[in-house]
Design a protein around this nucleic acid. Structure first.
Lengths: 162, 162
DNA sequence: TGGGTCTCAATGGATATTCATGGTCTGGAA
DNA sequence: TTCCAGACCATGAATATCCATTGAGACCCA
C-alpha cells in the first residue's frame, strides 16, 4: 500500500459542547487516502485509547475480516464482527475541521478535556494524555514530546480530579 | 538501490521565526530521489541529533516495519508503528528552500540557533553544532571542517548560554 | 590572470491565509 | 416553552506565501 500516511502528533482540546478539532494534517491525509471526509473511530484493541482511520483503511479491516472466513452465525464470528462494526462510529468532519465526540466514545477512550493524537501510518490513536503518560511500553521520546505539549498549554502533569 | 545520494555538509541558521534553509544540494537530492519536495525529519536512534530523509527512504523504513510482520493491531505492533510515524514530521520545502522547525523537533534534536547538516548517503543528520563537537567517535576531519564553518560565521567555539 | 558581470543560495521582513477554538443563532424535539 | 444539536460567525495565534537584500561563487572576456 502506498497511500499517504498519517504522520506526526497533536494535542487538541474538547470543548464544552464535546467538539474536537481533528489535526489539519490528519484531515488532509484522510482526504488524500479516501477521497472523503469520513473519519472512523473505534476502540483500540488491547490499549486504553481510541483508534481513528479513513474509509479506505476501514475497507482493509473489513476485507481482513472477510478473508478470515468468519462465519457470522457463530458466536465467535458475531463477536468479531461486532468488535469491528459495533463499537466503531463514523463521523463526517465539518467545515471547521471538527467532530462531536459522543458520550460512548469518550467513555471508551476515557477521554476528558484534551485528546493526544499520535500517528501510526495507516491510522492514528487518540488518547487521554494522562493515560498515555501512564502507558507502559511507549517510546520515551513520545512521552517527552507529549509532556512538552502539555506544558506549552499549561496542563498539569498529574491528572486533575474530574 | 542506486538513487542519488546525499553528499556533503552545511551549517545554516534558524531565524527568529524558526525557519531553516535546507542546503540546496540536499534539496536537489530529495527531488532526484523521490520526485517530491517532501522532507521527513525524526529523531536519530542512539544519537543526540535529528535525521532527515526523502519520501523514498521513508518507504524503505516503512517496508522494513512491514517485514517484521508484526500485527499492528496488537499493542506492540502499534507502538512500533508509532515510533516510526509518531515522532517523525513531514515537511514540504517551500519556494525559498526552507521549512519551519516545530518546537517538538527543536526539543528532540536540542536545536537552537544553527543546524549542522551532515550527509550519510540515504539520509542526512541535523545537529546542534555544539552537540556534534562533543560527540565521541566523530572523524577528527569532520570536527575541523565544522570548526572552520563556525569560525567563518563568527560563532563562539563554546556554547553560549540560552 | 584579473576584473567585471551574472546567478543563485541563504536570510530577513511584511503580508496573507489557515488553524484551533469560542461564541451565537435557530429550528425542532421533548 | 425549554432544551439541545447543528449551522454559522468571530478571533487570536500560528503558519504559509511573497518580495527584498546580500554575499559568495560561477562564468566570461579581454
Amino acid at each position: 500500500m502506498s497511500y499517504e500516511s498519517f504522520i506526526g502528533y497533536a494535542l487538541n482540546a474538547v470543548d464544552t459542547k464535546n467538539r474536537l478539532s481533528i489535526p489539519a494534517e490528519f484531515r488532509d491525509a484522510i482526504v488524500a487516502r479516501s477521497g472523503t471526509k469520513d473519519l472512523y473511530i473505534g476502540p483500540a484493541r488491547g490499549l486504553d485509547c481510541l483508534i481513528g482511520y479513513d474509509k479506505s483503511y476501514h475497507q482493509v479491516l473489513q476485507n481482513r475480516l472477510d478473508a478470515q472466513a468468519v462465519d457470522e452465525e457463530t458466536a465467535e464470528g458475531a463477536f468479531r464482527a461486532m468488535a469491528l462494526f459495533g463499537s466503531t462510529s463514523a463521523f463526517k468532519i465539518d467545515d471547521a475541521g471538527r467532530i462531536v465526540m459522543t458520550a460512548g466514545l469518550k467513555d471508551l477512550g476515557d477521554i476528558a478535556g484534551h485528546v493526544w493524537f499520535v500517528a501510526g501510518g495507516n491510522w492514528f490513536q487518540m488518547w487521554n494524555p494522562y493515560r498515555f503518560l501512564e502507558q507502559a511500553g511507549v517510546e520515551p521520546r513520545m512521552l517527552r514530546i507529549l509532556r512538552r505539549e502539555m506544558e506549552a498549554r499549561g496542563l498539569p502533569m498529574t491528572e486533575p480530579a474530574r
